[in-house]
Nucleic acid binder design. Structure first.
Lengths: 341, 341
DNA sequence: TAGAGATTTGACATCGATGTCAGAAATCGT
DNA sequence: ACGATTTCTGACATCGATGTCAAATCTCTA
């Protein structure tokens, strides 16, 4: 007997298959004695239910989809890992689906995984969680979805976010507290709405401190290392060089850091640099980057919890759950008091 | 009618469900005329077979498992992405399963995904592909598996690798060609066997050039950035400093690079540094790292192909396929002619 | 043109679980 | 102690596809 079925267990325990099923799924209405007997046989035979048969009859797949723009990025890896671990705890599995909104057939691809895999729920990562055409697809399929760090909570069963605005405000306050006044800001592409929130927080803090933002030092980059390199060059070779540069993500901050090194500007003595994300590379640089820790794995885990929670399994339109997870300002080596003028 | 079944298609096309099934699966023995008619109805209704029903009856899951040590690393991300994309082309899906060989219940976890998910095949990434206890688990389940860059090809249906030894030899030859004679080597942990092969290549090239290796400059690190930092310090602050340092992976090379910067040693003028992997971060550093491009995505894609190939679906013990994919020496900014003595 | 052989097609059983529902057993109130 | 509830339990249908196998149809050959 190569594969053990529920009938084998039933026969050996002297009960019906249905009763075994009840025990497996922790349903009520099974005498303690029987439950125990069945559990023992399950353990003895090392029985594991066939996930496909189960899915077919219960029309639940025990599968969650993680839809993500660029699965190779470090950000994606953290999100994925958080989701994966939580899925494992909950006896779910995770299927990662890259979505290339630039490509031609992404809608068909997404629709295909929804209908063929009968996903129980979807987790949608930024920035594509802000794409209305994409979320509409899930809504149409009545598939519960949780958005990670979205701009709007449209239609979703839930969302998990951090407070980008407050975090950026804290970082700015911290820089101001160090005596910096000429602070440059590098924001991300328009498609990443969270970047706009970070800029908002930066401006708020500056305004509260009564300091005018020099608009020529607020630049837009593409969230990658190269952008930091180029925009850093631009900021640092100009006439009135800022004493601090706040980049909306770590990769760009790292680019700025390298540029400063090339130009022979001492960090943090002559220039403070800070990022946002607490990516793995932020610790791999030297000096290590001051940044905001974004609770990526926690957000992903929470997303799984929301979807697994029974009340969402039934209906996409029903209950909602919106979580805000705490961030943390992490001071490392790239920030220091503003240089004497 | 919210979900379209094969019967709907059959009814509308005026044929039996079985015939529709034949068309879907591209089986022979269907008249061209009927085939066409069915295909048209499938397109009209946008019908997609239920993967679970299909798996249940055919006892194929159309699911491949990717078993990996540390799913957060950049290496893992590349492997994963390569596998994912190929799976997609082949209408398979990928389930990523982290395996923590240090943990207590990893065997149960792995066994659980094998039996519950009825995987069609497994891809096992380094370094765990060299763990006999793990591969035995798959062999026992008669599950076809492909090892990525393994040391030994034991039992596997196939393997995909690159020639670590030759690559390291090429890199060493390149450094020798630049006039370097005192070349240090930083190898990885013993669990990563590929690192030992790289060391072998390095020694081979040195021997062929008739240059004795200074054993005090062959060190062992843990393959991460911090190790590079520490071992770099050790190598660079000693009495007879090497003119080139070859690290067995990029993360460690990056650590060395940062240390050199801290110590005020000009790279590449006074010191050449090279890595191995062509990781994303190797391009994010400055100067960009000279390294060996490892065909990670290609290896993963090839692994998928091997598993999807019909001849392996039947039996794990049957045919075998071992692929060797080409690497490439990528010269960037961290290497240059040896300094005048 | 009958009959052998190859090709097409569909009826039906099957994969392994869960949902439904009715009957059996246990508990309760009086 | 008896019927009325409540709690358990299992027979059977079902989910949506594919495998098996026999019947129907088509192609040839003599």
């Amino acid at each position: 007997m190569s594969v053990i079925t529920i009938k084998d267990v039933a026969a050996r325990a002297g009960v019906s298959a249905k009763t075994v099923s009840r025990v497996i799924n922790g349903e009520a209405h099974v005498r303690a004695e029987l439950r125990e007997r069945v559990e023992q046989v399950v353990a003895e035979l090392d029985y594991r239910p066939n996930a496909f048969a189960r899915s077919l009859s219960s029309s639940r797949s025990y599968l969650l989809g993680l839809f993500i723009d660029d699965p190779v990025s470090g950000y994606a890896a953290d999100i994925q890992h958080g989701a994966l671990m939580r899925c494992r705890e909950r006896s779910y599995h995770l299927v990662v689906e890259p979505v290339d909104l630039g490509g031609a057939d992404w809608a068909a691809q997404v629709r295909s995984s929804i209908t063929a895999l009968r996903l129980d729920g979807a987790i949608i990562a930024p920035p594509i969680c802000d794409d209305a055409a994409l979320t509409a697809l899930f809504a149409e399929a009545e598939l519960p979805m949780v958005l990670v760090a979205p701009s709007a909570k449209a239609q979703a069963s839930g969302s998990v976010s951090m407070d980008d605005r407050s975090a950026a405000r804290e970082m700015t306050d911290y820089l101001l507290g160090l005596g910096h006044r000429r602070i440059a800001f590098i924001q991300g592409p328009e498609s990443h709405r969270s970047s706009a929130r970070r800029e908002g927080g930066f401006r708020e803090a500056m305004a509260k401190a009564g300091i005018a933002v020099d608009e020529s030092t607020v630049l837009r980059g593409t969230f990658n290392f190269r952008a930091g390199l180029e925009l850093g060059e631009q900021l640092l070779s100009g006439p009135s060089r800022p004493t601090a540069i706040f980049a909306a993500n770590d990769d760009m901050a790292l680019g700025v850091l390298i540029t400063a090194m090339k130009l022979g500007i001492a960090v943090p003595e002559a220039l403070s640099i800070c990022g946002f994300d607490d990516s793995a590379s932020s610790r791999a640089a030297w000096p290590q980057l001051t940044t905001i820790r974004q609770p990526k794995a926690e957000m992903a885990g929470a997303a799984v919890d929301i979807l697994v929670n029974p009340q969402f399994r039934k209906q996409a339109g029903g209950a909602h759950s919106h979580l805000l997870l705490p961030h943390e300002l992490i001071v490392r080596g790239t920030t220091a008091s503003a240089p004497e003028r």
